[in-house]
């Protein structure tokens, strides 16, 4: 290449194309995103965080919590559970249909597992098929309905993160609609926090954990955030906000640990982290009754 202008144009085109792809396109596709409908419900998702939690987001940003914590749950796919809600009038036929399908679909796997059984049904299992493909679940539901039972499909997200209890489904764009800045994080030196509000809803636990992580989680590598708290002499009466600690982490006698407003805001933010609405792009069936 003989000419600087050619180099310039080459670089301009190369960068311009990727700019269109990863800046312009996302802004057009995602920048105008709105609330989404929650599946099987009239609710919309997400609803903005309360004010204190929003201030807590800024405490989270200022102290760089995202350097060690992600807020994105992964999912490797989804599976279906078949649930029989009513055994109908002919339970033996239901059981026979179940066994027939069992030998058809899983010939090598004559299961000895314990199945919870529908009461007074002569042994009709409540969950005849667990973690199966959608096609199998569809066939099963149809077959059960043919013999008079009522059955439904539960969609379950699967993957290591879900099994760890970090969430019920993968994180999607809607989860971050109102966050400014969006802090997904890229390193899990600490656990994922996308659903920490659902997992550890107690704000007091969060405060104690922020002040002395090792008091609650053994061998935790999290640095304590003692600068978000005030250790002060107990005055006439102990503060209602004072935190309680085990002996090893307690403040000196006559003193109490009181969270500063920043600590309370951060705890409020953490409690507000729950991405647990089933959405069209990340469906799952919220289950309350399953043992």
């Amino acid at each position: 290449m003989r000419n600087g202008v050619i180099v310039f144009i080459a670089a301009f085109i190369a960068l311009g194309v990727s700019w269109c792809g990863f800046v312009l396109a996302p802004v057009m596709q995602l920048g105008t995103e709105k609330q989404a409908a929650v599946l099987n419900s009239s609710d919309v998702y997400p609803i903005g965080r309360p004010g204190e939690a929003n201030q807590g987001l800024q405490v989270y940003r200022a102290n760089g919590c995202a350097a060690c914590h992600t807020e994105q749950v992964q999912q490797s796919g989804f599976a279906c559970d078949v649930m029989i809600t009513s055994a109908g009038t002919n339970p033996p036929a239901v059981i026979a249909a179940w066994w027939r399908m069992q030998t058809n679909f899983f010939p090598n796997e004559m299961t000895q597992r314990f199945y919870s059984v529908i009461p007074n049904s002569g042994g009709v299992p409540q969950f005849p098929f667990e973690r199966v493909r959608k096609e199998i679940a569809d066939i099963a539901v149809e077959s059960f309905q043919n013999v008079g039972a009522k059955a439904e499909i539960h969609i379950i997200a699967i993957g290591p993160d879900i099994e760890r209890g970090w969430g019920l489904r993968r994180s999607v764009a809607e989860d971050f609609l109102y966050d400014q800045p969006v802090q997904l994080g890229s390193l899990r030196a600490g656990p994922d926090l996308a659903n920490v509000g659902a997992r550890l809803p107690d704000a007091n636990w969060q405060l104690v954990h922020l002040y002395a992580p090792q008091a609650l989680v053994k061998n935790s590598t999290m640095p304590p955030f003692r600068f978000l708290f005030e250790v002060r002499k107990i005055g006439n009466a102990p503060s209602p906000d004072a935190l309680q600690f085990s002996k090893a982490f307690a403040p000196p006698a006559g003193c109490e640990v009181v969270p500063k407003p920043e600590a309370k805001q951060l705890a409020a933010y953490l409690s507000s982290l729950r991405a647990d609405a089933p959405l069209y792009e990340a469906p799952f069936t919220p289950i309350m009754t399953k043992p």
Partner: peptide
């Protein structure tokens, strides 16, 4: 002039 939502993530990664 921050864009909304996860478009931020795409731009930041880029």
């Amino acid at each position: 002039w921050p864009v909304r939502g996860v478009a931020q993530v795409a731009i930041n990664s880029w």
